[in-house]
Amino acid sequence: TTYKLILNGKTLKGETTTEAVDAETAERVFKEYAKKNGVDGEWTYDDATKTFTSTE
């Protein structure tokens, strides 16, 4: 399943996707990605669109 991440950081904005077996796995991948890029925001998830959003 393809999951999408929308980053709305103070210094980094953008989108990326990952293939994962479930939302929990995708969330771990995306949170590590955000951390590596210095984004520490509030997380939301929309199951209908398989989209995570992190907003600082």
Rank of each mutant, 00 (worst) to 15 (best):
Trp43Thr: 02
Thr44Asp: 08
Thr2Glu: 08
Tyr3Gly: 02
Lys36His: 09
Phe52Trp: 06
Ala26Trp: 01
Asp22Leu: 04
Lys4Leu: 07
Gly9Glu: 03
Lys35Cys: 10
Lys35Glu: 09
Leu12Phe: 15
Ala23Lys: 15
Glu15Asp: 05
Asn37Gln: 13
Thr1Pro: 06
Asp46His: 06
Gly38Cys: 07
Glu15Gln: 10
Lys50Pro: 00
Lys13Cys: 14
Asp40Met: 13
Tyr3Glu: 02
Glu19His: 13
Ile6Gln: 04
Ala26Arg: 01
Gly14Gln: 14
Val21Cys: 13
Ala48Val: 11
Leu12Lys: 09
Arg28Tyr: 07
Thr49Asp: 04
Ser54Ala: 15
Ala48Arg: 11
Thr1Lys: 10
Phe52Cys: 00
Phe52Met: 01
Glu15Arg: 07
Leu12Gln: 08
Arg28His: 08
Thr25Gln: 12
Ala48Thr: 12
Val39Gly: 03
Thr2Lys: 11
Asp47Gly: 08
Asp47Arg: 09
Tyr45His: 01
Trp43His: 01
Ala23Tyr: 15
Asn8Tyr: 12
Lys10His: 13
Glu32His: 07
Ala20Val: 04
Gly38Val: 03
Thr25Ser: 13
Glu56Ala: 07
Thr11Cys: 15
Thr25Trp: 07
Asp40Gln: 12
Lys31Leu: 07
Lys31Gly: 02
Asp47Ser: 12
Tyr3Arg: 02
Glu27Asn: 05
Ala34Pro: 00
Tyr45Ile: 00
Lys4Phe: 13
Lys10Arg: 13
Gly38Ala: 06
Thr2Pro: 04
Thr49Ala: 06
Leu7Asp: 01
Thr49Pro: 01
Gly9Arg: 04
Val29Pro: 00
Glu19Met: 14
Leu7His: 03
Lys31Ile: 08
Glu24Phe: 10
Phe52Val: 00
Thr18Asp: 02
Glu27Lys: 11
Phe30Glu: 00
Thr17Asp: 04
Lys36Val: 11
Thr16Ile: 15
Glu27Phe: 15
Gly9Cys: 08
Ile6Pro: 00
Lys35His: 10
Gly41Arg: 02
Lys36Tyr: 09
Asp40Cys: 13
Lys10Asp: 07
Phe30Asp: 00
Lys35Leu: 13
Arg28Asp: 05
Tyr3Lys: 01
Glu19Ile: 15
Thr16Pro: 02
Lys31Pro: 00
Asp22Met: 03
Leu12Pro: 04
Ala26Lys: 00
Lys10Ser: 10
Gly9Pro: 03
Ala20Ser: 06
Gly9Ala: 06
Leu5Arg: 00
Gly9Ile: 04
Ala26Asn: 00
Thr16Cys: 15
Val39Glu: 04
Thr44Arg: 08
Ala26Phe: 01
Leu5Cys: 12
Gly38Trp: 05
Asp47Asn: 09
Gly41Trp: 15
Gly41Ile: 06
Asp47Leu: 08
Tyr3Ala: 01
Val29Thr: 10
Asp46Met: 03
Ala26Pro: 00
Lys13Glu: 05
Phe30Val: 00
Thr18Val: 15
Lys13Thr: 11
Ala23Val: 13
Leu7Asn: 01
Thr17Val: 08
Thr25Arg: 06
Thr2Gly: 03
Val21Tyr: 12
Ile6His: 04
Lys4Gln: 05
Thr51Cys: 04
Asn8Ser: 09
Asn8Asp: 10
Ala23Asn: 06
Ala48Glu: 12
Asn8Arg: 12
Phe30Gly: 00
Ala26Gly: 01
Glu24His: 10
Asp47Val: 10
Val39Asp: 03
Thr16Met: 15
Thr51Ile: 05
Lys10Gln: 11
